[in-house]
Each structure stands twice: as C-alpha cells, then as structure tokens.
Design a protein around this nucleic acid. Structure first.
Lengths: 188, 188
DNA sequence: CCATGTGGCTAAGTTAGTTAGCCAAATGGC
DNA sequence: GCCATTTGGCTAACTAACTTAGCCACATGG
C-alpha cells in the first residue's frame, strides 16, 4: 500500500484545522483520518490518542498566539502597544475560533512544555504593562484586568455570546479605549 | 420493584450538580443514573437524551443567574448597582463553575424558551446601564464592555485561566472600579 | 378490583476511541 | 544490489457511552 507520508506535526496541524472548523468537540478521529486519507488506527502511529492530540493542538496554539502578540508589540510601547496586541489578539481568535478557548487554560502543574509556552504568552503582556511603570499588586491587578477584558470580549464574540454581530469592531475599539484609560490612571 | 419516584426536574437538578462537580464533559448518564439510584435507560423516561438534558440544565442555569442578578440590583442604581451585580455575578459563577459557561451562549434562533430566559438575563444589564443615561451605540458598546469584563474575569477564574489564585478578590474589586469609572465617563 | 398509564428494567444496537497484531514499504549497512 | 530492520499502513476486536425496543410491575381511579 502506498504510504500517506504522515508525520506527527501534519496530524496536529490538520486537527487544529478541524477544530477551528467544527469546534473542539467536532474533532473526531474519524474525520481526521478521512481528511488525511488514512484509516483511524494509523493515526496512533503519530499521535498518542485523543487527549494527547488535543494537548498538541493546544501547545501549538499557545505558541502561535504568543508569537503573534509579541510580533504585534515589537517597536511599540504603552497605549500604542496595547492597541496593537489587542488587535492581534482578537484577530488571531477570530481566525482560530476553535483553538482559541484551548489557549486560555493555565498549565497543569508539572507539564513543563505547557508551562513554558504559557509563560511566553504572559510574558508579552507583562512587558507591555511594564511600560506603565506598574509594580507589585498593581501590576498583577492590571494584568488580570487586561486579560479579562480582552478575553471576555473575544470569548463572547467567538463563542456566540453576542446575539447581534453588528458593529463589533466599534465596540471592541471602545473597549480598548477604556482599557487604555484605566491603565493610564491605574495607580490613582 | 420499588420506584425511585423520579421527575424531570429532579434529574435536571442532579445533572446540574454533577456538572458543577465534574465539568460539562464530566456529566455522563452512568454517574447520573448511579447518583439517582436507577439504571441508565430509566433516565429516558424523564429526559429526552443527553443534548436535551444539557439544554435543560442550561435553561435552569440562565434563569437562576438572571434572578440572582435581578435580586442583587433591586433598590440600587448606577455604581452601587454595578457593584452589586458584579459581586452576585462572580459569586454565582464560583458556586456553579460547571454551569456558568453554559449560560454564556446566545440562544439558537427559534428556540423560544432560550430566547426568553436569555433576554431576561440581558434585561437586568440593560436596566442598570439605563441609569447612566447611555443611548444608542453608547448603550450597546457599554453593555458589551460590561459583559466582556465580568465574563472575562470570571471565565478565567472558574476555568483555571489564572495560574495563581492569590488576591483574586482584590483584583476583581479593582476590575469593578475600572468598569465603574469607564461607565461614568463613557459619553466623553 | 381490574384497566390503564407510568416508571422501572434487560437486552441489544450504534458510534467513538483504543489496542493487538499483521504485513508491506522504506531505509541503511554490507 | 540485497537483506535486516524500522516504520507506517492495515484489519479485527474490545470498551465505554448514548440510545432504542420492548417487557413487566407498581400505582391509580373508575
């Protein structure tokens, strides 16, 4: 039989595609195998079962999102940086609506790969907020505020929480403005 | 055989309990039947299968949350009302971490029950924001801002998005303060 | 006191993930 | 070039979960 020439990363990539198309629960080994032109058990030669496959997609997603945010923040600071990463953040989520929720879980203790890539994601935010000179508790609160606001909007948008999809761009812009205002007056 | 004396609402309530305990995907007919002292197929006499069961839990959850928020806002307005519903919102989510995500999806078009209960939920927010005299686009943006901020924080907290669970109360209070500030200067 | 509807049950089917074990295609040393 | 080994497919079979069919006993009400 002619070989399909699969490799672990090809399987993970296709799984990510399927997840974006049909949601996390829409991923099944059946469609995955079908899309890759292979029978179901063959997938086990490349991937260690469904949970491991999902974990692989999650790791790649966090990595990709972190890179996207870092790249958006390059050469910018403060309000400009916030605007840039906010835009990149929403953009990435809209392009990867299925993967997005997977990026929002803290790593399990002891999972070093996940810890590393999750730290990279947080690091981007920390470094942007560093520009506002926030320290200690203020820095923690502000980080949580920023993450919560961005995540809340994007989660509702991609998860179908907003019934009317009108003017979402404007509403998001308005949200970002409020965030920036809050950060500039945080220590008061 | 002695009857267990089940009823649809008992099954739904127990399902909600299980969901809060083990997450949405932790609900199985096996544990449900076991908890209720009954064999699996007997559940079908009260509930129309797994998807319908989840929908039942979702409807009850939205209803419960809406009532909780409405009750928190009674007799209060503006900043005080925001503070009260923000507190009630987080409280409810922490008490029902499994059900909470189920309350965040817009109703499917044509699902009248869901539409009704979802509207009730939004109505509470609208009426509180009405106190700020926001109209038209401002009202829409502010509603989305409020929902996004509260949801983002609570979703990250209950979904394990915040790695360090220290001082979350303070961070949330700080978030609410920022929301209130933003709402008071919204039209500027 | 029996006629009827209801709420349990067992048995069996379906779908999805998984494991075992086989076999052909690639690959690499000689 | 040839054979040994590894690799990547495969079929078959198992398990867990939801679901359906169909049976039977208990409760209820004329």
């Amino acid at each position: 039989m002619a070989r399909a020439g699969l490799a672990a990363d090809v399987v993970v990539r296709e799984a990510a595609r399927v997840i974006d198309e049909r949601g996390v629960n829409g991923l099944s080994l059946a469609v995955l195998a079908d899309n890759l032109g292979v029978r179901i058990p063959s997938l086990y030669k490349h991937v260690d079962g469904m949970p491991a496959l999902r974990r692989g997609v999650m790791l790649a997603a966090k990595k990709d999102l972190a890179e996207e945010l870092a790249s958006a923040a390059v050469g910018r600071s403060r309000d400009e940086a916030i605007g840039a990463i906010a835009h990149a953040y929403r953009q990435w989520a809209l392009e990867h609506p299925g993967q997005y929720p997977m990026t929002m879980h803290a790593p399990a203790p002891g999972d070093d790969d996940d810890t590393a890539v999750s730290s990279a994601l947080l690091e981007v935010i920390f470094r942007v907020l560093a520009g506002y000179g926030l320290e200690g508790d203020d820095a923690i609160d502000a980080t949580r505020f920023l993450r919560a606001s961005l995540h809340g909007f994007v989660a509702l948008e991609t998860g179908g929480g907003f019934a009317m999809p009108v003017d979402l761009d404007r509403s998001y812009q308005r949200l970002v403005t409020s965030i920036v205002t809050a950060l500039n007056t945080w220590a008061e």
